[in-house]
């Protein structure tokens, strides 16, 4: 291995280890509430980055993340659920799944695969068309998925949702997913594939003229984003041990879009920062909301701030760039 290639591997690894050490230190003194909050921030950051991959890189407007999260959550939960209780609770499961009780890792992988397959089925007809069809088709997908989860009660337990999912995930699983998503997004962004995606976003016609298959780019970005969303949904379910048809709604899709826009469409670090800021902000506003009885207030604040950002800084925090500091950090040239 050449010296440069080695350097390119060691530097990001060192960053990840440093971040892990920092997280470990924080967790030492954290209350249970704070640990859960950190896990949620990490998962939201992973979701926001995966949406940046779809919406930011290729200029799509997908609102489908909640649908893929719900799919992922149910798929993984059904796989890890106690084999003893499964036949009575979920009578319509085929026998070979009913007898299965998998560890978390294969279950999350299965969730990702199913999410990706659904994305292919939906994306294939819709992504040949222009952007806004995807927005509405993915909103429709949310309704379909919720509707199926609600009515197919032999497999999902209907509106009551699936409770008692083993609490297999932890804040470290969330951290792992975030590292994976950022690594994949980073590798894609600074490769020919990523440049092709950005070209698709900037000017479809010009991209086609240089030989880029824009439909394929959009489909790739959409499927990868959906795969990660399903994995995040699976981890959420195993973190809070319950999933219902309404766990992940349109509001979540909107909040993820806000994170992507505020971070800068196409900026990976922007999405991470915005996800942490917005998740923290809504958490801080929640006590105020509850004491005043004004449910919906924090959401109005988030939506209004988005409108202001669109008016006055439409490119978001970082545009589609990564901060120089982070780029140097990841390439191991911090001091050169």
């Amino acid at each position: 291995m050449s010296k440069n290639a080695l350097e390119a591997l060691i530097a990001p690894l060192a960053v990840v280890l440093a971040a892990a050490a920092l997280l470990w230190l924080v967790l030492l003194g954290a209350s249970d509430y704070l640990v859960t909050l950190i896990a949620i921030v990490l998962l939201n950051a992973a979701l926001a980055v995966s949406l940046t991959l779809t919406n930011g890189f290729t200029g799509l407007f997908s609102l489908g993340h909640p649908a893929f999260m719900t799919i992922g959550a149910y798929v993984a939960a059904i796989l890890t659920f106690s084999a003893r209780r499964k036949p009575s609770m979920l009578p319509d499961l085929p026998a070979f799944i009913a007898g299965l009780e998998l560890p978390l890792l294969p279950a999350v992988a299965a969730a990702g695969i199913v999410g990706a397959l659904v994305a292919i089925v939906v994306g294939f007809p819709v992504l040949r068309l222009r952007g806004h069809y995807l927005a509405v088709a993915t909103l429709g997908l949310i309704v379909i998925v919720q509707n199926l989860a609600l009515n197919w009660d032999g497999i999902t337990r209907g509106g009551a949702g699936l409770a008692g999912i083993p609490r297999l995930a932890s804040v470290w699983w969330a951290f792992g997913l975030l590292v994976l998503v950022v690594a994949v997004a980073w590798r894609i962004k600074f490769s020919s594939l990523g440049r092709a995606m950005l070209a698709t976003r900037e000017n479809e016609l010009a991209a086609e003229c240089t030989g880029i298959d824009t439909v394929k780019m959009r489909l790739t970005a959409f499927v990868i984003g959906a795969c990660f969303a399903a994995m995040a949904g699976a981890l959420f379910a195993h973190l809070i041990s319950v999933v219902t048809p309404k766990s992940y709604s349109v509001l979540l899709a909107f909040n993820l879009v806000v994170m992507v826009v505020i971070g800068g469409a196409g900026s990976i670090m922007g999405a991470v920062v915005a996800a942490a800021a917005i998740t923290g902000l809504s958490e801080m506003l929640r006590p105020a909301e509850e004491s005043l009885g004004l449910y919906g207030f924090s959401q109005v604040v988030v939506a209004l701030s988005l409108i202001l950002v669109l008016f006055f800084r439409p490119q978001g925090l970082f545009g589609n760039r990564e901060p120089d500091f982070v780029r140097r950090l990841f390439s191991g040239r911090l001091f050169k």
Binding site: L63, A135, A303, I307, P314
Partner: peptide
Amino acid sequence: APQVTGFIATLAVSIVIQNSALM
């Protein structure tokens, strides 16, 4: 502005209307 910006803005307005109504 680009078309996507417009969608995002209308979605934000919708969220403002719905949540104000909820409040």
